[in-house]
Nucleic acid binder design. Structure first.
Lengths: 249, 249
DNA sequence: CGTGGTATTGAGATAAATCAAAGTCCGTGG
DNA sequence: CCACGGACTTTGATTTATCTCAATACCACG
């Protein structure tokens, strides 16, 4: 199993995730290891959970990029979050019955499905794990807040730059970044749907960022030429990601 | 005490809030009643929690309107949420050490302060209350998502209309709306900071909404002339507020 | 009855959208 | 190995939504 999925089994991924946001005891680890997990692979651009669904399981992303989005009747689409390996993109379905958005793959993905029933039993036994999940939800909410700021009041180039800073930072945290950049398998149309810009404008703003010597792109790789300068330009302050905070027992 | 605060003591407000998102047992109610709560009044436009703070208590809004916002170095300001009586606008400080935004009053407010220490003891004793808090956080996150959509891809008039629908709906839920509208003590500049529009543009878009026969405004009251039409126009679907969902024990 | 904060109006500037056409890249199959 | 097709990126030209600045009008309150 872990042979076929280079980034570890679902259990390992989940334990690593929770350990990164709260301390996890030995018993809790054993409980997590016992969770029934179903691993599945998906092609790119596949809808995994539909808007309006009431799923009976959560997803843990093992490999690939996913996104949450809302499709408006006007034809417009807004991406509200990107997800990278280690994320629990629809954790809220444990507590909220109806999906108010859709969840889909952006690239080919490996996803681990964990039944709500098993998760509820587990957090019933280990309240500390409920706290870890709650904390994860709160960090996600903090990211949403920053996205409101991003689309609400940053000009095009800064808006893209800020998104790049966030993704780089998050990928780094799970060991998926390189020294000078990261994989960025997102088309300009996708970046547009995430930033509230048209794809044509995204293209021009990327040229702007390249012209400023902040980034370079080759194929699906985003090279960050000067991280400090990029962050300053974007007004990026990683505090909102709440990564380096003291872990309480 | 409850004599001086018409909308009930802090304890009542908190119990009502939690009961609206999860079932609360008799013992839990007793535990909540025993919380040490400090009530305070504030004038309008006062910052209650600062960006970067690490508070040791949560706020429960008893009376008035509050808002969460981020001030950018560029001088721009983005409001990321509005809060009405019954809300816990900084509940996340129970789990996240650093405020990544500020919290302030919009109107004169009555706020109940509840120490983290007491809350942590309580949720330690009653894990079900932790779930209720978690659920509240998730509903707030759902509202942030919808705000990303609002600012990201709705045109001016629809954007304002959507915000009005949301506020009316939420005020209704806590019994603070009238049949045909609600108090709306928000200046056009404030509405602009929330929707990512300039105050001048807000003014023109309000005229647009009035011209369409959707709303009317007198003094600080927002009259909703045709709720159906307004919701259709805004593309408003209250699902994301997760109000009517089955309450699990 | 001022006076300060809002709301409104007008005119001009600008960021970003739209539409349409090339251009580039990349995988696939012949 | 090359040619093809489809998806993505880039470019140009035009239109539109929204911003900015500045002036004026309207209240509500002391």
């Amino acid at each position: 199993m872990s042979a076929s999925f280079p980034h570890g089994s679902g259990h390992d991924g989940l334990i690593r995730k929770l350990a990164s946001i709260a301390s996890v005891s030995r018993d809790e680890r054993i409980g997590l290891q016992a969770l029934p997990i179903l691993m599945r692979s998906f092609p790119a651009d596949q809808e995994i959970v539909r808007d309006g669904d009431d799923p009976d399981h959560c997803c843990l992303l093992i490999e690939g990029f996913m996104h949450c989005y809302k499709q408006l009747e006007t034809g417009k689409r807004q991406i509200v979050s990107f997800h990278i390996p280690g994320d629990l993109p629809d954790l809220q379905t444990m507590q909220l019955n109806v999906m108010d958005h859709a969840l889909g793959t952006l690239t080919p993905c490996v996803v681990a499905f964990i039944p709500h029933r098993a998760l509820h039993l587990l957090v019933g036994e280990f309240p500390n794990l409920a706290v870890a999940f709650w904390r994860d939800s709160l960090i996600n909410a903090a990211i949403f807040r920053e996205w409101v700021v991003n689309v609400g009041c940053r000009p095009g180039p800064q808006r893209l730059a800020h998104l790049f800073c966030e993704l780089f930072y998050r990928l780094e945290t799970v060991g998926l970044a390189h020294k000078d950049g990261c994989e960025m398998p997102l088309t300009q149309a996708v970046l547009g749907d995430a930033t509230g810009l048209s794809s044509v404008h995204v293209n021009r703003m990327m040229q702007d960022l390249r012209g400023r010597g902040l980034i370079a792109t080759k194929a699906k790789f985003l090279q960050i030429l000067d991280r400090e300068k990029l962050q300053d330009f974007a007004g990026f302050d990683p505090t909102y990601l709440h990564m380096k905070e003291v872990l309480s027992p």
